[in-house]
Amino acid sequence: MNVKTLCLSILYYGEASGYDIRRLCTEEEFAYFVEASFGSIYPALARLEEEGCVTSRTEQQTGKPARKVYSITETGRRIFAEELAEPLGEDIFRSPFLLFARFAHILPPDLVEQRCNEFLARTVKSRQRLDEAAAREGRNPTDRWIIDYGRAVMEVAEAHMRTHMHELVTMARAEPRKDAAE
């Protein structure tokens, strides 16, 4: 899935500016699908507009610069559906915490414990946000299914961390540090 498809997916439900799209795909409900930066969103929107998949209008704002608001066209809806029908790529999972955990054996136990607790707190917070999203009225069945999937993943991550965090802390400094002078 590419940034153009992500933009179309957000616009499928209503108008949005490039800023709105960025916020939705980093902080809100589309954050679980594809990561997109401003540097990729605006060129994607420009290409979509050239291809007739979206239209735009300038919206004046009081005390702020005008903003460009995009809407999906019927062509955009058709192309979006065609994109969804294409074979899917592999899911991508990246975790700075797992890189940290991979090298826990060279770190001090108190630091490993601190990072584990921070990860656990973020995981709990993510699950709670999904719980709140699930409680909101007016969700369609596919939204509910996706939210429930996310909640299940967060519950497993939380349970694993609570059950096995001590193992990672115990592994800390299991290997002597290698000094650069050696």
Rank of each mutant, 00 (worst) to 15 (best):
R122P: 02
E167V: 01
M1F: 09
G39H: 13
R144I: 01
R162W: 00
A81K: 15
P108N: 06
A101N: 02
R94G: 09
I147P: 03
F33I: 00
S9H: 11
I21V: 02
A133W: 05
E90L: 14
L88E: 15
T123N: 11
P43A: 12
P141R: 07
L48G: 06
F119C: 09
D131P: 03
H105R: 08
K68R: 12
A81C: 06
L111I: 00
E132V: 04
K64C: 02
A36K: 03
F38E: 06
L6N: 08
E82R: 13
V124T: 14
R162E: 12
H105W: 02
Y42E: 13
S71Q: 14
D143F: 01
F119W: 11
L120V: 04
S37C: 02
A46P: 00
R162Q: 14
C116L: 08
T55K: 03
A36N: 04
L84N: 10
T75F: 00
A152R: 10
A16M: 02
R173D: 05
I106R: 05
T55E: 14
K64I: 06
C25W: 06
A16N: 01
Y70L: 00
A104E: 04
E137D: 14
Q128V: 11
T163R: 12
G89M: 11
K4E: 15
F100D: 02
W145A: 15
R22W: 15
Q114Y: 11
D131Y: 03
A31H: 13
E49F: 04
E27K: 13
E182V: 14
D131T: 06
V34Y: 11
T163G: 13
Q114W: 10
E49N: 11
Y12R: 15
Y13G: 09
L168A: 03
A66G: 01
Y149A: 14
V112L: 04
D91C: 10
N2Q: 12
L8C: 05
E137C: 07
Y19P: 04
A157N: 09
L24I: 13
C116A: 09
A46F: 08
I106H: 03
E158Y: 01
K4H: 12
I106T: 08
E27C: 14
L111R: 03
A46Y: 12
H160N: 05
A121H: 10
D20G: 10
L168H: 05
N140D: 13
E167N: 11
M1S: 14
C7M: 06
V153Y: 10
S95T: 04
R115C: 01
T170R: 12
Q61A: 05
